[in-house]
């Protein structure tokens, strides 16, 4: 028994020693991981900062976020007041190359909006009223342009750089999203999904 007791005691001591080693090892590994993972710290800081919502784009099928913006002509526009007809929201900037390249197409579908029973709204982001007015004049835009001077609409729609186009149906549901410049094919597809064609 003595022998057994001694053996148990030795095993217990060894186990405790192993346990201590495991604890130290775990601590060391944790510290090492923490030391080598600054992004993790930043992500935690983000969560601590109160921004725990994931950064993701508004999804197709979701309700389009309402907004109210001043137009170039001084009037206001809100998405709510356009309910009942499909809306094409085009985010652009006067300094943006791909925006300029797609603008003739956006202008073309805007020119057919009355006949087609839908509305095209441009939303100028990260821009000035003067520059947008000049842009509108130069490119002879035929649709109303909202000035998102404080970036509130851009943030609500999670735009990481213009252009971006949202096709919204008459009930206010996003039916298609094109990030980057639109093409004639994608425009037709978007209009169809929004219930225009």
């Amino acid at each position: 028994m003595d022998f057994d007791e001694n053996r148990d005691a030795r095993e217990l001591k060894r186990d405790r020693s192993q346990s201590t080693r495991y604890h130290w090892l775990a601590g060391a590994v944790a510290l090492l991981l923490c030391w080598t993972l600054p992004p993790y710290g930043s992500m935690v800081a983000w969560a601590q900062h109160g921004h725990t919502t994931p950064v993701s784009a508004p999804a197709i099928g979701a309700r389009a976020v309402d907004f109210e913006l001043k137009l170039l002509d001084g009037k206001s526009v809100s998405l709510e007041q356009l309910r009942g007809k499909p809306v094409i929201l085009n985010f652009f900037a006067s300094w943006c190359d791909p925006c300029r390249e797609e603008m003739p197409l956006i202008n073309e579908i805007a020119a057919a909006a009355n006949k087609g029973g839908y509305q095209v709204i441009g939303i100028a982001v990260e821009d000035t009223r003067a520059a947008v007015m000049q842009f509108s004049k130069e490119t002879q835009l035929v649709f109303p342009i909202g000035l998102d001077l404080n970036s509130t609409v851009k943030r609500a729609y999670r735009i990481f750089g213009p252009p971006a186009t949202f096709f919204i149906d008459a009930q206010g549901t996003i039916r298609d999203i094109v990030l980057g410049p639109v093409t004639p094919e994608r425009t037709r597809e978007g209009l169809k999904k929004a219930g225009v064609l």
Binding site: Y22, V29, C34, W35, P38
Partner: peptide, 29 residues
């Protein structure tokens, strides 16, 4: 079995270190 328990304890401790102490250490601020 004892080793397994010890491993689980250590893993739990590792998670504790990461979750509770991680932010303070990770940023190395």
């Amino acid at each position: 079995r004892r080793h397994l328990i010890l491993c689980l304890c250590s893993f739990t401790e590792l998670l504790f270190f990461l979750i509770v102490l991680g932010p303070a250490v990770a940023t190395q601020a």
